[in-house]
Design a protein around this nucleic acid. Structure first.
Length: 290
DNA sequence: AGGCAGGTTCTTA
DNA sequence: TAAGAACCTGCC
């Protein structure tokens, strides 16, 4: 199906943004780039063509799930446009990051993924996450509609084969020790296990956390073992869609020190500091001009 | 071959 | 409160 999507939307930038680990570009014989998204126990293939999206799902599924997942509600062009004209770095960063959106990802998946992310580079995070999904997730089967879509767009069948959902808390908690051992988690393994146990047992109630304000949510996330300020911020921003969180990692730290010695104007960009962070992160990482 | 990767925890002062 | 070491693993 084809859908008009007038706002910023660049699948490649989102794939590379570091907010999600289960987007990828899949090989295709066609001229256009084809992306695969795994989320919410589903798969979506997509091509962006100007202001149109060519999607492998039905209208109904798009409206009931993917539209919300892509955060169609927020106007990223407007947020991007609010960057201070005097702020050269942010202007450039926002221009370079045009097309990035903040996805509405699953809180549990986001929590676990960012616990795993510590002291790992993005390919290593992806690799661990995929192993966990393959060993503990549910198989995702393609429907007739998706299969037809892949054929029409010259995508190899492998792109739709052997896909797995991210495990729910119970599935992750019940994972045999030896399986978890094979996911290259290192010292993070115990963090992951305990977090899964906490959520499964109800000690950490993610649904309850949804109802908390930013500050309360942050402090409750910090209670989880293996979750510090950075992981808590990422979880809040990407998994609870709290767009004002501003995760500070090594890259952003470098940007702040070099470009904002007097401090970043957080008041100015409330409640969208997290969106600005994404532009700054992406630009800071992709350029040496920081 | 040693250092480092989107950090966190634990120890020490 | 703050600085420093230790931590798994894979990849250059």
């Amino acid at each position: 199906m084809i859908r008009e999507f007038k706002d910023d939307m660049d699948p490649l930038l989102i794939t590379e943004s570091g907010q999600c680990f289960r987007w990828c570009e899949v090989p295709s014989n066609g001229k256009e780039k084809v992306f695969r998204i795994l989320a919410g126990g589903r798969v979506l293939f997509l091509i962006r063509r100007g202001s149109e999206l060519d999607l492998s799902c039905s209208e109904k599924e798009y409206d009931s799930f993917w539209s919300d997942y892509l955060d169609s509600e927020n106007d990223y062009r407007a947020i991007r446009g609010s960057a201070d004209k005097e702020d050269d770095f942010l202007r450039k960063a926002a221009e370079a990051g045009k097309g990035i959106r903040i996805l509405k990802q699953d809180p549990f998946e986001t929590l676990i993924s960012f616990i795993i992310s510590q002291r790992k580079n993005i390919p290593a995070i992806r690799s661990s996450v995929e192993k966990i999904c393959a060993l503990a997730g549910k198989r995702i089967e393609l429907g007739a509609e998706e299969i037809r879509w892949l054929k029409e767009h010259s995508v190899a069948e492998e792109a739709g084969a052997s896909l797995f959902s991210f495990p729910d808390p119970e599935e992750l908690f019940n994972m045999p020790e030896k399986d978890l051992d094979s996911c290259s988690l290192g010292y993070r393994k115990d963090y992951v296990k305990r977090a899964a146990e906490d959520v499964f047992s109800g000690k950490t109630d993610l649904n309850r956390l949804m109802g908390l304000d930013d500050e309360e949510l942050f402090s409750e996330l910090l209670e989880i073992r293996g979750v510090g300020k950075k992981v808590a911020s990422c979880t809040a921003l990407f998994g609870f869609h709290r767009l004002d969180f501003f995760p500070v990692d090594v890259w952003i730290d470098r940007v702040l020190k070099n470009c904002y010695p007097a401090g970043f104007p957080f008041e100015r960009y409330r409640p969208f500091n997290g969106v600005m962070q994404q532009y700054m992160f992406f630009y800071g990482r992709s350029t040496t001009a920081v």
